[in-house]
Every structure is written in structure tokens, then in C-alpha cells.
Nucleic acid binder design. Structure first.
Length: 352
RNA sequence: GGGUAGGUUGAGCAGGUGGUGAGCUCCGCUGACUGUAGAUCAGCCGUCUUCGACUGUGGGGGUUCGAUUCCCUCCCUGCCCA
């Protein structure tokens, strides 16, 4: 797909930069890693530094000096992750700020206004994500509310240069998912997102849910975005089921915790065995980290809690993940998808 | 040489004025992490046959039913005086 900040080749992975920064990385790092789109977050940025302030400063792209595309999440995920700090009603959600406790009100209309102020290339509808293991009635209630909010977001959306994606909910119940897919696909969105997954359900449940969504969407040509996914193997499971876009905190979060994704699988650089390992994290990788530094050095930096550890590990994982998606795109073109998947499976475990 | 304060599991401590010291923080080891309240969190961290058991409070000796605690002695460390 095309945005005013460049073309997005799909399938694509979008690094998460919640607070106007992909933790530990500069825009140049991201560009070098091959990033085409990154995420920003409505809830976090509206609390701090404030959407109006970012607008005054020229919008999110200029504010963070990122000239690639930006997708902003609506704050729907925070309805879930900050569940104990918010109250949901049909009109919207009231949060007690995780920073200072002050009340902040998000409504579908306000989340669109914020995202338009931020000036992202792709905005998301405000949804209500719930634990799929809740009672069916609760999952359904949140789903129906999400549908009503989707309509309100669409009505409130006014920037023609900004795409708006609707979000499917419905937990892991096939019937609810089917209904939600039909409801969201029936609205005039620029893209369709699958929300509410990778929140504790099994791999099989996620796959089955994606199958239902794919079946219901049929030949719908709009880009399909699986929110919050994923791990190396998740990409293959989802692309097989028609997904075009991914975002996930995993590559950057696990990097900060010492885990590097490599052609040998996962490596925990905090492990004793790397202290004398002179090899790069991944000898097949061309990122700055792998070109210049040894596992032993990274192991040392993590032990010493040196800040460079977090940056070097993040540079590698983001590069590696974006490269994996690039290889995946090539494999699709060349018909070697199954081979590549097999290779990743061997290194990351079929149970991944 | 005299005085004084101390010697507790890798380090630093807590506790214990005669009645079962494995408690804390670091360090260390391992694991987790999926639209980021996360450079975070969890477990382990004396030994073992590990839902428990055993050992352990500088060394030696003494008093006592019982000593980490009281007494003697030695060793070591900090500080003060010579």
C-alpha cells in the first residue's frame, strides 16, 4: 500500500514506538534496519506530551524526526492492559492516568481527533479488547460496543490524507468473529485489522480465528493487519491466512531483556556461555551490532547494565525481524514460503 | 605492646542479653516476555535421596540438660593510643 510517507511492501512488520520512539533506536537506526512504518500510541502520546502540543510542533513525524510512515494505535489496547485504571461505558473510556492518576477521557471521536492531530498515516478505530476467556456475553458486549465505536470513528474521521483501519474483535468464538468481521468489513475503512489476539490464547486458537476471518473476508482487497503479533513463527502462520501487516513489541522488548533472534534461534545473551563467545550474535546478519560486536561484548554490556546493550540488541532484533519479513516476501514471490517456514520452525521450535 | 569495636551462607547486612539463625539486599544461575505503566518480571542462589532433611554464627577449650549468646584462650580485621 502507499502512504504519503512512502510505500509499504507487504507482508510488513511495524516496530512499536509507543511514546514517539522505538525504545533505544534513532530514526536513522530504524531506516537502516529497513523499517517502512512504525507505531505511535494515542493514549500514551495524548497523556504525554499531549496531542495538541505535538500538533503545534509540526505533527508526530516532525516531532520525532521520522519521515517514514506512522500508524497510530487508538488506545484500545490500553483499555485492556490498563484495565484496573479505567472505566468503560458506551460513550467511551475514562482512564486514571498511569502517570499521575488524573482522569483522562477517551471516546471514539476524541481518539480520531488525537490521531488527526498527531498526523499519522494510518489511524485505528477505538476498540474494546477483552480477555477471550471471559464469558461469551462479555466478549459479545465488548464486540458490539467496538462495532458501534467503529461507526463513530468513521463518522468523526476527517483527514483525507490519513487512512483509517477498522478493528475486528470477538475473542476466539468463531461465530462472534464471523459477525465482527462482517460488521467491520461492511464499513468504509481503508484497511481491516484483527484485534484481540495474542493475549493468552493458544496458537491453534489464533490460527482458527484467523481462518474464520479470512473465510469471511473472502476476496476483500483491503490490507489486513494482525495487531500485536508476533513471534518469528507467528508471521508465517498469519501470512498463510492472508495477513499483510504486523506490529509487536516482542523484538524490542526481548532485546532489552537480553534475548536476540538469530539464524540459530533465540539466544539469551545473559547466559554464562556467551561470556567468551567471540562470534557475532548472528554471523548471517549485516546489522551494525553483528558487523562490529561479539556475543561476549554484548554479554558483558548486559551484565554491566550498560545502556549500549539495549541499543545494540534492539538494532539487531529489529533488523533481523524486518529482514525476516523481507525474506518472507521474497519467498512468496519465489514459491519457497514452505522452505523458509521450515527453516524458522527448526530454529524457533514448532511449539513457538 | 595497650585499649576498643568487630568476625553470621560469594559480598554487604539483619537477628540472636542460654531454649530449633537458611531472613534481607547485591552478585551469580535459569526462565518468561506478543496493538509497551516492562532497560521488566518470576524462580533458584550451604549440602542432600529437595512437598522434606541435614549442616552452618572465626579456631580450640570450658560452664550447662542445652551455647550463636556466658567464661578462657588463640587467630584475623578496623579504629585509637604508644
Amino acid at each position: 500500500m502507499t502512504t504519503r510517507h512512502g510505500i509499504i511492501e507487504t507482508p510488513q512488520f511495524m516496530p512499536v514506538g509507543t511514546q514517539a520512539t522505538v525504545k533505544g533506536l534513532t530514526p536513522a537506526d530504524l531506516r537502516t534496519a529497513g523499517a517502512q512504518v512504525i507505531l505511535g500510541n494515542t493514549y500514551h502520546l495524548s497523556l504525554r506530551p499531549g496531542a495538541e502540543r505535538i500538533a503545534r510542533l509540526g505533527g508526530l513525524h516532525r516531532f520525532m524526526a521520522w519521515d517514514g510512515a506512522i500508524l497510530t494505535d487508538s488506545g484500545g489496547f490500553q483499555v485492556f492492559s490498563l484495565a484496573h485504571l479505567r472505566r468503560v461505558d458506551d460513550e467511551g473510556v475514562t482512564f486514571a492516568s498511569h502517570i499521575d492518576g488524573a482522569a483522562h477521557r477517551l471516546t471514539p471521536e476524541r481518539t480520531i481527533e488525537i490521531q488527526e492531530l498527531l498526523g499519522s498515516d494510518i489511524a485505528m478505530t477505538f476498540d474494546q479488547l477483552v480477555d477471550p476467556n471471559l464469558a461469551a456475553s462479555e466478549v459479545e458486549e465488548a464486540m458490539d460496543r467496538t462495532h458501534r465505536w467503529a461507526g463513530r470513528c468513521l463518522a468523526a474521521h476527517s483527514r483525507p490524507d490519513q487512512a483509517l483501519f477498522g478493528i475486528i474483535q470477538g475473542g476466539i468464538d468463531a461465530n462472534l468473529r464471523r459477525r465482527s468481521t462482517a460488521a467491520i468489513a461492511g464499513l468504509d475503512f481503508d484497511g481491516i485489522a484483527v484485534g484481540g489476539l495474542s493475549v493468552g490464547e493458544s496458537k491453534d486458537q489464533m490460527a482458527a480465528t484467523l481462518d474464520v476471518v479470512a473465510e469471511e473476508l473472502g476476496g476483500d482487497p483491503r490490507p489486513r493487519y494482525l495487531m500485536g503479533v508476533g513471534s518469528p513463527l507467528d508471521f508465517f502462520d498469519a501470512v498463510e491466512r492472508g495477513i499483510d501487516l504486523f506490529d509487536c513489541v516482542l523484538p524490542t522488548r526481548v532485546a532489552r531483556n537480553g534475548q536476540l533472534w538469530t539464524s540459530e534461534g533465540r539466544l539469551n545473551l545473559r547466559n554464562t556461555r556467551f561470556q567468551d563467545d567471540a562470534a557475532p550474535a548472528d554471523s548471517a546478519c549485516v546489522c551494525e551490532t553483528c558487523r562490529n560486536h561479539s556475543r561476549a561484548y554484548l554479554a558483558h554490556l548486559f551484565r554491566a547494565e550498560e545502556l549500549l546493550a539495549y541499543r545494540l540488541a534492539s538494532v539487531h532484533n529489529v533488523t533481523w525481524t524486518l529482514t525476516l519479513l523481507k525474506r518472507l516476501r521474497e519467498a512468496l514471490r519465489e514459491g519457497s514460503f514452505v522452505d523458509l517456514r521450515g527453516q524458522i520452525r527448526r530454529n524457533f521450535g514448532a511449539e513457538d
